[in-house]
Design a protein around this nucleic acid. Structure first.
Lengths: 238, 238
DNA sequence: TAAATTAACTTGTATATACAATTAGAAAAT
DNA sequence: ATTTTCTAATTGTATATACAAGTTAATTTA
């Protein structure tokens, strides 16, 4: 089986501009080059440029104003936790440290959260890992991630200490998170969470159950995230 | 000042198809008419139809499969609470009752949540209301809504008992929520929440602080929502 | 000087067209 | 009967073009 690596040009334009915003080549508050400029810059036509910009608008990187131009809003903060990808992008890598509680290992699905698994997924088993994540050296996130054990060579031997799981899935396995569904609830910290977060009995904690869809059909990533929102609330755009 | 009520045709196509999905004229699991069929149906060209479908894909009403067609997924459940609009669409109107705690009234901004207000907003004052919302006769949501007091005739005299605030803003004032930002945290129920939700001291409750952007420049709707997630968790797609 | 007009530039909408890539089913070959 | 091949239909990508609508700044006019 060969992968068609053909990348559409609107995608290239999108990736390039996005990268420039992330690298602050295009700074927040400034105007993006006009659509026509981008056309000549990337040698494509306006509908193509506009398709790229549409995606950037949807994801909150830019805002458009008719007659004026496209204003860079910068990398959307907190886009991660409430929309896509992981917690890394929600905080910014500078302040985030990760401690592996359970290294990635193959095991049976210990529990299916609230999402029902397909027979196929059940048979495969899953790669299971637990991480505790610190923001400014305070434990804020505790997350369990479960991925169907489907042909991810070398996956369990990779280091996840300071990398985003989703970056690894994307770069090494061409797996991209496309969207998903999640549940959010508030609950009291149980024994384990009390220990991890260093809080007292009954402390309110936020829980997210997430099922993430990928660009591979029927391949889902499951995670359960607990957050101590005492100092750091979850922030997101919608 | 006159409003240009010109509605683009891709928008009409979008609204019509969306309505048909909501009314189950297009049933979940079935195929939408092909893009070319929709073209002749609405007398527009394919890019126009595709723009409408793009929006429906983004909002989770349909899924597209190259070579196959567009499959109706139905009205996205829970899209409301974690993305756009209010709580109404998250649950379905059947089971949702609303009790007005504080009728819409003009007052000063009692507090600015965690969002900072512009000078303009401060001067205007706000329309303030509090509602308690029941799902299957159990109180689940308690929300405070604050809207800048900007020329919304008859607004305070309207009934919000069983209507969505956002439906009213849209239908009567042509104000549409375009997106926004929110914070989510877990906290202990205070006296008021204990009373409203009928829970004990220290009960974990979910809190959302939201600032919603509209199609009117610099017009934001603010709300603070408290949820008892004991029986009904917040559900959302992303 | 101040106001009104104009022009240039920007994004928004829409059409018409062409070909690529994928799917599903029919037709043909084995 | 089974497999392979082909064909039609469908969505994906891309170009070229035109005009509408909003913004800004220069120009003209009073």
């Amino acid at each position: 089986m060969t992968f068609s690596t053909r990348i559409p040009s609107y995608r290239k334009v999108y990736e390039t501009i996005r990268k420039h915003i992330q690298d602050e080549l295009y700074k927040p508050g400034t105007l993006l080059p006009s659509e026509n400029d981008l056309c000549t810059l990337y040698n494509v036509t306006r509908p193509t440029v506009r398709k790229a910009l549409d995606a950037l608008v949807n994801e909150g990187f830019i805002k458009k104003h008719q007659g004026k131009g496209s204003i860079v809003t910068g990398v959307p903060k907190g886009i991660g936790i409430l929309s896509i990808t992981g917690t890394t992008s929600a905080i910014g890598k500078e302040n985030l440290k990760t401690k592996i509680i359970v290294k990635p290992e193959v095991r049976n699905w210990s529990f299916a959260f609230t999402f029902s698994l397909s027979e196929f997924e059940k048979e495969l088993g899953c790669i299971y890992m637990e991480r505790l994540r610190y923001v400014n050296n305070k434990p804020v996130f505790y997350d369990i991630t479960m991925i169907p054990n489907l042909n991810l060579p070398r996956f369990t031997s990779r280091s996840f200490e300071n990398k985003s799981l989703f970056d690894i899935l994307r770069k090494h396995y061409q797996i991209e998170i496309k969207g998903g569904e999640q549940q959010i609830l508030a609950l009291r910290a149980d024994k384990k969470l009390q220990e991890y977060f260093g809080v007292h009995k009954g402390h309110p904690v936020l829980q997210l159950n997430r099922r993430m869809e990928t660009n591979r059909l029927n391949f889902f990533v499951y995670s359960q995230v607990f957050c101590n929102t005492d100092e750091y609330v979850l922030y997101g755009r919608f």
